[in-house]
Simulated scan of single mutants.
Amino acid sequence: MTFRMPPEWAPHERTWMAWPGPNPTFTNDEELAEARVAWASVARAVRRFEPVTVVHGPGQGEGARELLGPDVDLVERELDDAWMRDIGPTFVTDEDGRLAAVDWVFNGWGAQDWARWEHDSKIARHVADLAEVPVLNSPLVNEGGAIHVDGEGTVLLTDTVQLGPGRNPDWTREQVEAEIHAKLGTTKAIWLPHGLAGDYGMYGTQGHVDIVAAFAKPGTVVVHSQQDPAHPDFVRSQTYVEILRGQTDAQGRPLEVVEIPAPTVLRDEEGDWVDYSYINHYLCNGAVILCGFGDPNDEIAANVFRDLFPEREVVLVDARTIFAGGGGIHCITQQQPAVRGTR
Protein backbone atom coordinates (compact mmCIF):
# COMPACT_ATOMS: atom_id res chain seq x y z
CA MET A 1 0.00 0.00 0.00
CA THR A 2 1.52 3.31 -1.14
CA PHE A 3 0.67 6.58 0.57
CA ARG A 4 1.40 10.08 -0.67
CA MET A 5 1.01 13.54 0.79
CA PRO A 6 -1.49 15.59 -1.24
CA PRO A 7 -0.50 19.16 -2.06
CA GLU A 8 -1.89 21.84 0.20
CA TRP A 9 -4.15 23.17 -2.56
CA ALA A 10 -6.05 19.87 -2.71
CA PRO A 11 -9.45 19.88 -0.95
CA HIS A 12 -9.41 19.73 2.86
CA GLU A 13 -11.70 17.97 5.30
CA ARG A 14 -10.61 20.36 8.06
CA THR A 15 -7.75 22.34 9.61
CA TRP A 16 -6.13 21.43 12.93
CA MET A 17 -4.58 23.99 15.27
CA ALA A 18 -3.24 24.10 18.85
CA TRP A 19 -4.08 26.73 21.46
CA PRO A 20 -1.26 28.76 23.07
CA GLY A 21 -0.72 27.95 26.74
CA PRO A 22 1.84 29.04 29.33
CA ASN A 23 5.28 27.99 28.06
CA PRO A 24 8.74 29.46 27.38
CA THR A 25 7.65 30.84 23.99
CA PHE A 26 5.45 33.41 25.72
CA THR A 27 7.45 35.00 28.52
CA ASN A 28 4.58 36.68 30.38
CA ASP A 29 0.78 36.86 30.60
CA GLU A 30 0.61 39.82 28.23
CA GLU A 31 2.50 37.97 25.48
CA LEU A 32 0.33 34.90 25.98
CA ALA A 33 -2.85 36.96 25.73
CA GLU A 34 -1.60 38.60 22.53
CA ALA A 35 -0.70 35.19 21.09
CA ARG A 36 -4.15 33.83 21.81
CA VAL A 37 -5.76 36.76 20.00
CA ALA A 38 -3.46 36.19 17.01
CA TRP A 39 -4.08 32.43 16.87
CA ALA A 40 -7.82 33.04 17.16
CA SER A 41 -7.70 35.50 14.25
CA VAL A 42 -6.17 32.82 12.05
CA ALA A 43 -8.64 30.16 13.20
CA ARG A 44 -11.62 32.39 12.51
CA ALA A 45 -10.26 33.33 9.09
CA VAL A 46 -9.83 29.68 8.13
CA ARG A 47 -13.23 28.76 9.60
CA ARG A 48 -14.94 30.91 6.97
CA PHE A 49 -13.86 28.31 4.43
CA GLU A 50 -13.61 24.94 6.20
CA PRO A 51 -14.04 23.27 9.61
CA VAL A 52 -11.37 23.98 12.23
CA THR A 53 -10.49 21.94 15.30
CA VAL A 54 -8.34 23.54 17.99
CA VAL A 55 -6.57 21.37 20.57
CA HIS A 56 -6.25 23.16 23.92
CA GLY A 57 -4.62 22.34 27.22
CA PRO A 58 -6.52 21.30 30.37
CA GLY A 59 -8.71 24.05 31.77
CA GLN A 60 -8.22 26.37 28.78
CA GLY A 61 -11.38 25.56 26.86
CA GLU A 62 -13.57 28.35 28.21
CA GLY A 63 -11.04 31.07 27.40
CA ALA A 64 -10.43 29.58 23.97
CA ARG A 65 -14.15 29.50 23.23
CA GLU A 66 -14.50 33.19 24.08
CA LEU A 67 -11.91 34.16 21.46
CA LEU A 68 -12.65 31.51 18.85
CA GLY A 69 -16.43 31.81 18.80
CA PRO A 70 -19.03 29.06 18.55
CA ASP A 71 -18.10 27.61 15.15
CA VAL A 72 -14.63 26.24 15.97
CA ASP A 73 -14.42 22.72 17.40
CA LEU A 74 -12.43 22.31 20.61
CA VAL A 75 -10.76 19.23 22.10
CA GLU A 76 -8.67 18.98 25.25
CA ARG A 77 -5.26 17.32 25.37
CA GLU A 78 -2.01 18.02 27.20
CA LEU A 79 0.17 20.47 25.23
CA ASP A 80 3.59 22.06 25.54
CA ASP A 81 3.40 24.62 22.73
CA ALA A 82 1.11 25.69 19.91
CA TRP A 83 2.72 24.94 16.54
CA MET A 84 0.40 22.33 15.04
CA ARG A 85 2.25 22.22 11.72
CA ASP A 86 5.23 20.77 13.56
CA ILE A 87 3.74 18.75 16.39
CA GLY A 88 0.74 17.42 14.49
CA PRO A 89 0.70 14.57 12.00
CA THR A 90 1.40 14.82 8.29
CA PHE A 91 -1.71 13.41 6.61
CA VAL A 92 -1.28 11.15 3.59
CA THR A 93 -3.65 9.23 1.34
CA ASP A 94 -3.38 5.96 -0.58
CA GLU A 95 -4.50 5.08 -4.11
CA ASP A 96 -7.93 4.11 -2.81
CA GLY A 97 -8.39 7.49 -1.15
CA ARG A 98 -7.91 6.23 2.40
CA LEU A 99 -6.31 8.54 4.92
CA ALA A 100 -3.39 7.90 7.29
CA ALA A 101 -1.19 10.07 9.50
CA VAL A 102 2.61 10.15 9.58
CA ASP A 103 3.96 10.53 13.11
CA TRP A 104 7.48 11.95 12.83
CA VAL A 105 9.73 12.06 15.88
CA PHE A 106 9.37 15.50 17.47
CA ASN A 107 12.15 16.69 19.80
CA GLY A 108 11.61 20.42 20.22
CA TRP A 109 13.11 21.57 16.92
CA GLY A 110 16.42 19.87 17.53
CA ALA A 111 16.29 19.59 21.34
CA GLN A 112 16.69 23.33 21.89
CA ASP A 113 17.39 24.45 25.45
CA TRP A 114 14.15 26.37 25.90
CA ALA A 115 11.85 23.81 24.29
CA ARG A 116 9.61 21.26 26.01
CA TRP A 117 8.09 18.36 24.12
CA GLU A 118 6.89 15.73 26.58
CA HIS A 119 3.29 16.30 25.51
CA ASP A 120 3.80 17.75 22.04
CA SER A 121 5.64 14.60 20.96
CA LYS A 122 2.33 12.73 21.43
CA ILE A 123 0.01 15.21 19.70
CA ALA A 124 0.37 13.68 16.23
CA ARG A 125 -1.01 10.39 17.53
CA HIS A 126 -3.78 12.17 19.46
CA VAL A 127 -4.87 14.03 16.32
CA ALA A 128 -4.74 10.82 14.27
CA ASP A 129 -6.94 9.13 16.86
CA LEU A 130 -9.39 12.03 16.81
CA ALA A 131 -9.46 11.88 13.01
CA GLU A 132 -9.91 8.09 13.29
CA VAL A 133 -7.07 7.26 10.90
CA PRO A 134 -4.15 4.81 11.19
CA VAL A 135 -0.70 6.03 12.19
CA LEU A 136 2.46 5.53 10.15
CA ASN A 137 5.40 5.80 12.55
CA SER A 138 8.66 7.30 11.32
CA PRO A 139 12.07 7.17 13.06
CA LEU A 140 13.05 10.47 11.42
CA VAL A 141 13.15 13.63 13.55
CA ASN A 142 11.19 16.01 11.38
CA GLU A 143 8.42 18.60 11.45
CA GLY A 144 5.65 19.57 9.07
CA GLY A 145 7.17 22.99 8.49
CA ALA A 146 10.36 21.34 7.26
CA ILE A 147 8.75 19.81 4.17
CA HIS A 148 6.73 21.08 1.23
CA VAL A 149 5.36 18.92 -1.59
CA ASP A 150 3.86 19.48 -5.02
CA GLY A 151 1.69 16.36 -4.91
CA GLU A 152 3.43 14.98 -7.99
CA GLY A 153 6.56 13.54 -6.45
CA THR A 154 8.68 16.54 -5.45
CA VAL A 155 9.57 17.64 -1.91
CA LEU A 156 11.54 20.64 -0.64
CA LEU A 157 13.96 20.13 2.28
CA THR A 158 16.79 22.03 4.00
CA ASP A 159 20.21 20.80 5.07
CA THR A 160 20.09 22.43 8.50
CA VAL A 161 16.86 20.70 9.52
CA GLN A 162 16.81 17.09 8.37
CA LEU A 163 20.61 16.82 8.46
CA GLY A 164 21.11 19.05 11.51
CA PRO A 165 23.03 17.71 14.52
CA GLY A 166 20.09 18.25 16.89
CA ARG A 167 17.74 16.11 14.84
CA ASN A 168 19.30 13.32 12.80
CA PRO A 169 23.08 13.41 13.40
CA ASP A 170 23.67 9.83 12.26
CA TRP A 171 21.57 9.97 9.10
CA THR A 172 23.00 10.44 5.61
CA ARG A 173 21.29 12.53 2.95
CA GLU A 174 20.38 9.31 1.14
CA GLN A 175 18.81 7.82 4.26
CA VAL A 176 16.76 10.97 4.90
CA GLU A 177 15.53 11.02 1.32
CA ALA A 178 14.59 7.35 1.44
CA GLU A 179 12.49 7.82 4.59
CA ILE A 180 10.86 11.02 3.33
CA HIS A 181 9.98 9.36 0.03
CA ALA A 182 8.66 6.25 1.77
CA LYS A 183 6.29 8.27 3.97
CA LEU A 184 5.24 11.03 1.56
CA GLY A 185 5.18 9.11 -1.72
CA THR A 186 7.71 11.50 -3.25
CA THR A 187 10.54 10.54 -5.58
CA LYS A 188 12.69 13.67 -5.83
CA ALA A 189 14.03 15.90 -3.04
CA ILE A 190 15.27 19.41 -3.73
CA TRP A 191 17.59 20.55 -0.95
CA LEU A 192 18.17 24.15 0.07
CA PRO A 193 21.23 24.81 2.26
CA HIS A 194 19.53 26.71 5.09
CA GLY A 195 16.58 28.80 6.16
CA LEU A 196 16.24 32.54 6.71
CA ALA A 197 18.71 34.24 9.05
CA GLY A 198 16.13 35.09 11.70
CA ASP A 199 15.12 31.43 11.97
CA TYR A 200 18.36 30.64 13.80
CA GLY A 201 17.70 32.90 16.78
CA MET A 202 15.75 32.27 19.95
CA TYR A 203 12.63 30.19 19.18
CA GLY A 204 13.84 29.59 15.63
CA THR A 205 13.37 26.26 13.88
CA GLN A 206 16.92 26.18 12.51
CA GLY A 207 15.84 26.41 8.91
CA HIS A 208 12.27 25.38 8.10
CA VAL A 209 11.58 25.47 4.38
CA ASP A 210 7.98 26.74 4.70
CA ILE A 211 9.21 30.25 5.35
CA VAL A 212 11.63 30.12 2.40
CA ALA A 213 9.92 28.40 -0.53
CA ALA A 214 6.64 26.64 -1.30
CA PHE A 215 4.95 25.07 -4.29
CA ALA A 216 2.03 27.07 -5.64
CA LYS A 217 1.17 24.41 -8.24
CA PRO A 218 3.08 21.63 -9.98
CA GLY A 219 6.13 23.17 -11.63
CA THR A 220 5.79 26.52 -9.85
CA VAL A 221 7.45 27.54 -6.60
CA VAL A 222 7.18 30.82 -4.67
CA VAL A 223 10.38 32.03 -3.01
CA HIS A 224 11.15 34.63 -0.36
CA SER A 225 13.00 37.56 -1.92
CA GLN A 226 14.69 40.02 0.41
CA GLN A 227 15.17 43.24 -1.56
CA ASP A 228 17.41 45.15 0.86
CA PRO A 229 21.16 44.38 0.68
CA ALA A 230 21.49 45.38 4.34
CA HIS A 231 19.60 42.26 5.45
CA PRO A 232 21.48 38.93 5.56
CA ASP A 233 18.57 37.29 3.73
CA PHE A 234 19.40 39.37 0.64
CA VAL A 235 22.20 36.93 -0.24
CA ARG A 236 20.29 33.93 1.11
CA SER A 237 17.26 34.56 -1.06
CA GLN A 238 19.46 34.99 -4.13
CA THR A 239 20.93 31.57 -3.33
CA TYR A 240 17.47 29.99 -3.12
CA VAL A 241 16.40 31.49 -6.43
CA GLU A 242 19.58 30.36 -8.17
CA ILE A 243 19.25 26.79 -6.85
CA LEU A 244 15.56 26.46 -7.67
CA ARG A 245 15.88 27.95 -11.16
CA GLY A 246 18.44 25.25 -11.90
CA GLN A 247 16.13 22.43 -10.82
CA THR A 248 13.54 20.24 -12.45
CA ASP A 249 10.71 18.59 -10.52
CA ALA A 250 9.98 14.88 -10.23
CA GLN A 251 8.15 15.01 -13.57
CA GLY A 252 11.14 16.58 -15.34
CA ARG A 253 9.67 20.09 -15.64
CA PRO A 254 12.01 23.07 -15.13
CA LEU A 255 10.75 24.97 -12.10
CA GLU A 256 9.12 28.34 -12.61
CA VAL A 257 10.29 30.53 -9.72
CA VAL A 258 8.06 33.36 -8.51
CA GLU A 259 9.88 35.75 -6.20
CA ILE A 260 7.76 37.30 -3.42
CA PRO A 261 9.30 40.55 -2.11
CA ALA A 262 9.86 40.50 1.64
CA PRO A 263 8.24 43.11 3.87
CA THR A 264 10.22 46.35 4.03
CA VAL A 265 10.90 46.14 7.78
CA LEU A 266 14.34 44.68 8.54
CA ARG A 267 14.57 44.44 12.34
CA ASP A 268 12.21 43.86 15.25
CA GLU A 269 11.82 46.04 18.34
CA GLU A 270 14.82 44.33 19.97
CA GLY A 271 16.99 45.12 16.96
CA ASP A 272 17.20 41.54 15.69
CA TRP A 273 16.82 40.66 12.03
CA VAL A 274 13.24 39.68 11.21
CA ASP A 275 12.33 36.67 9.10
CA TYR A 276 8.95 38.10 8.12
CA SER A 277 7.86 36.17 5.06
CA TYR A 278 4.78 35.91 2.89
CA ILE A 279 5.83 32.39 1.90
CA ASN A 280 4.44 31.14 5.23
CA HIS A 281 0.85 31.32 3.96
CA TYR A 282 -1.86 28.68 4.32
CA LEU A 283 -4.09 27.35 1.57
CA CYS A 284 -7.54 26.29 2.72
CA ASN A 285 -10.68 25.53 0.71
CA GLY A 286 -11.30 28.58 -1.44
CA ALA A 287 -8.77 30.90 0.21
CA VAL A 288 -5.17 31.90 0.74
CA ILE A 289 -4.65 32.93 4.37
CA LEU A 290 -1.70 35.28 3.95
CA CYS A 291 0.61 36.71 6.60
CA GLY A 292 0.21 40.45 6.97
CA PHE A 293 2.74 42.76 8.63
CA GLY A 294 1.17 46.21 8.37
CA ASP A 295 3.71 46.76 5.62
CA PRO A 296 3.59 48.47 2.22
CA ASN A 297 4.50 45.15 0.62
CA ASP A 298 1.47 43.36 2.07
CA GLU A 299 -0.70 44.33 -0.88
CA ILE A 300 2.06 43.57 -3.39
CA ALA A 301 2.28 40.04 -2.01
CA ALA A 302 -1.50 39.71 -1.94
CA ASN A 303 -1.69 40.61 -5.63
CA VAL A 304 0.94 38.00 -6.51
CA PHE A 305 -1.12 35.36 -4.70
CA ARG A 306 -4.31 36.57 -6.39
CA ASP A 307 -2.62 35.99 -9.73
CA LEU A 308 -1.40 32.54 -8.65
CA PHE A 309 -4.76 31.51 -7.18
CA PRO A 310 -7.43 33.43 -9.11
CA GLU A 311 -10.16 31.08 -7.87
CA ARG A 312 -9.33 31.75 -4.20
CA GLU A 313 -9.96 34.70 -1.92
CA VAL A 314 -6.75 36.17 -0.46
CA VAL A 315 -7.22 37.00 3.22
CA LEU A 316 -4.52 39.00 5.01
CA VAL A 317 -4.17 38.29 8.74
CA ASP A 318 -1.68 40.19 10.90
CA ALA A 319 1.06 37.69 11.72
CA ARG A 320 3.58 39.84 13.61
CA THR A 321 2.68 38.39 17.00
CA ILE A 322 2.97 34.86 15.60
CA PHE A 323 6.38 35.61 14.10
CA ALA A 324 7.55 36.99 17.44
CA GLY A 325 6.91 33.52 18.84
CA GLY A 326 8.95 31.81 16.15
CA GLY A 327 6.69 31.12 13.17
CA GLY A 328 3.84 32.19 10.96
CA ILE A 329 0.37 31.23 9.79
CA HIS A 330 1.51 28.05 8.05
CA CYS A 331 3.32 27.01 11.24
CA ILE A 332 0.16 27.02 13.36
CA THR A 333 -2.12 25.21 10.91
CA GLN A 334 -2.20 21.62 9.62
CA GLN A 335 -4.51 20.41 6.87
CA GLN A 336 -6.45 17.17 6.90
CA PRO A 337 -7.08 16.26 3.27
CA ALA A 338 -10.55 15.40 2.08
CA VAL A 339 -10.94 11.78 0.96
CA ARG A 340 -13.52 10.04 -1.18
CA GLY A 341 -17.04 10.59 -0.02
CA THR A 342 -16.13 13.88 1.73
CA ARG A 343 -15.72 17.47 0.55
Results as ranks from 00 to 15, higher is better:
Val222Pro: 03
Val222Phe: 06
Val222Glu: 05
Val223Phe: 05
Val223Tyr: 04
His224Leu: 13
His224Gln: 15
His224Asn: 14
His224Trp: 12
Ser225Gly: 11
Ser225Glu: 13
Ser225Tyr: 08
Gln226Glu: 14
Gln226Lys: 10
Gln226Cys: 12
Gln227Asn: 11
Pro229Ile: 07
Pro229Thr: 10
Ala230Glu: 15
His231Trp: 12
His231Gly: 10
Pro232Asp: 05
Pro232Phe: 05
Pro232Gly: 06
Asp233Trp: 07
Asp233Cys: 11
Asp233Arg: 08
Phe234Trp: 13
Phe234Val: 06
Phe234Leu: 10
Phe234Ile: 08
Val235Cys: 08
Val235Pro: 02
Val235Leu: 13
Arg236Gln: 15
Arg236His: 15
Arg236Met: 15
Arg236Lys: 15
Ser237Val: 07
Ser237Lys: 04
Ser237Ile: 06
Ser237Tyr: 07
Gln238Trp: 07
Gln238Asn: 13
Thr239Pro: 13
Thr239Asn: 14
Ile243Leu: 09
Ile243Arg: 00
Ile243Tyr: 01
Leu244Tyr: 01
Leu244Met: 05
Leu244Phe: 01
Arg245Phe: 02
Arg245Gln: 09
Arg245Gly: 03
Arg245Val: 02
Arg245Trp: 02
Arg245Asn: 04
Gly246Ser: 04
Gly246Val: 07
Gln247Gly: 01
Gln247Phe: 00
Gln247Ser: 05
Gln247Lys: 05
Thr248Gly: 15
Thr248Asn: 14
Asp249Arg: 01
Asp249Ile: 00
Asp249Pro: 03
Ala250Gln: 04
Gln251Pro: 06
Gln251Tyr: 09
Gly252Glu: 11
Gly252Pro: 12
Arg253Trp: 01
Arg253Thr: 04
Pro254Gly: 07
Pro254Met: 08
Pro254Ile: 09
Pro254Lys: 10
Leu255Cys: 03
Glu256Phe: 00
Glu256Trp: 00
Glu256Leu: 01
Glu256Arg: 05
Glu256Gln: 06
Val257Lys: 02
Val257Asp: 04
Glu259Tyr: 06
Glu259Met: 13
Ile260Trp: 00
Ala262Phe: 02
Ala262Ile: 01
Ala262Asp: 01
Pro263Gly: 05
Pro263Leu: 05
Thr264Trp: 11
Thr264Ser: 14
Thr264His: 12
Val265Leu: 12
Val265Gly: 08
Val265Asp: 06
Val265Glu: 09
Leu266Glu: 07
Leu266Cys: 10
Leu266Phe: 06
Arg267Tyr: 09
Arg267Trp: 08
Glu269Asn: 12
Glu270Lys: 11
Glu270Trp: 09
Gly271Gln: 06
Asp272Thr: 12
Asp272Lys: 13
Trp273Pro: 00
Trp273Glu: 04
Val274Asp: 02
Asp275Phe: 14
Tyr276Lys: 05
Ser277Ala: 07
Ser277Phe: 02
Tyr278Ala: 00
Tyr278Leu: 02
Ile279Asp: 02
Ile279Asn: 00
Asn280Cys: 14
Asn280Phe: 13
Tyr282Ala: 10
Tyr282Asn: 03
Tyr282Cys: 10
Tyr282His: 11
Cys284Gln: 08
Cys284Tyr: 07
Asn285Val: 06
Asn285Tyr: 08
Asn285Met: 10
Gly286Lys: 13
Gly286Phe: 10
Ala287Asn: 12
